[in-house]
């Protein structure tokens, strides 16, 4: 089964190299480089910090967008071409197909991270860049698993991308939303306020703590450490298991 999983992963990754994803990666790198250089040139002081902040923020968003749109497009195309039906008609457990896809897209995520981190490493210490890149990879792996789940569930690319974008934004801002639900402007004696705060807390429980992933502080203030990365890695493993289980549940119940 491992060999079949590898084969599916290999062909999934091959699709990226034959498509325009690499050129798109290069274009985003160039755009992020130009934007960060303009920002650094205009800065009166802390020019390297401003360069890194623009570079890291742009590349992080670009990486999430690239991997999500590639997966959504790839799965939609495969379903339209009946490619997935052909693979699933072979004597192959569905989990092999799922894991193969997951592994193939994860390889693409690794390529994106390596390429982007190489650019960041030009302006930041190697160890901090390595920590930042590892955290970005964890973030992308969650996005890979989520987009795969949404692609099997919703099928249509705009719906998949909207769902992923909503999930990502909500996850990144959840801590601030939780604080605001109990902030000084909220009357906590009101039952409605307590209900809303409870709902917000409930949503936070089932979302990954992506807000703590890939902080730019690590690059600028060199404050990253193995301890933080270990927590991020643990959250990634747990959440990929959850998304993977949901994806498999959906895939096994589907009639092609």
């Amino acid at each position: 089964m491992w060999r079949q999983t590898k084969t599916i992963a290999w062909f999934t990754a091959l699709e990226a190299s034959r498509g325009r994803l690499l050129r798109l990666m290069a274009a985003t790198l160039l755009a992020a480089f130009l934007l960060s250089e303009i920002a650094a040139a205009a800065a009166v002081t802390e020019s390297n910090a401003i360069r890194l902040a623009f570079l890291a923020a742009t590349l992080r968003v670009a990486a999430v967008f690239l991997i999500a749109s590639f997966i959504a497009g790839s799965i939609a195309r495969e379903q339209a071409d009946k490619g997935s039906e052909m693979v699933l008609s072979l004597p192959l457990p569905r989990y092999v197909y799922y894991l193969g896809k997951l592994a193939g897209f994860a390889v693409i995520a690794v390529v994106i991270v390596v390429l982007y981190a190489a650019m960041v490493a030009l302006h930041s210490p190697f160890m901090q860049t390595l920590l930042w890149a590892s955290s970005l990879l964890c973030e992308l792996l969650i996005i890979v698993a989520l987009t795969l789940l949404c692609s099997f569930t919703f099928a249509q690319v705009p719906v998949v991308l909207s769902a992923v974008a909503a999930f990502y934004l909500l996850s990144r801002t959840m801590e601030a939303i939780r604080l605001m639900s109990r902030g000084p402007l909220v009357d906590t004696t009101e039952p409605s306020s307590r209900l809303i705060a409870g709902i917000v807390d409930g949503i936070a429980y089932v979302l990954p703590d992506i807000g703590s992933f890939t902080p730019t502080d690590w690059l600028i203030y060199h404050s990253g450490g193995i301890g933080e990365l270990a927590g991020i890695a643990a959250q990634t493993v747990i959440y990929i298991a959850l998304l993977g289980a949901a994806g498999l549940f959906d895939l096994y119940r589907r009639n092609f």
Binding site: A204, D209, A241, A245, F249
Partner: peptide, 20 residues
Amino acid sequence: VPISALALLPAALAAQLYWH
């Protein structure tokens, strides 16, 4: 759905809740 996939779903959800 295989038992292993069915078992993974609540187990992973429990792990996520515990982690949070």
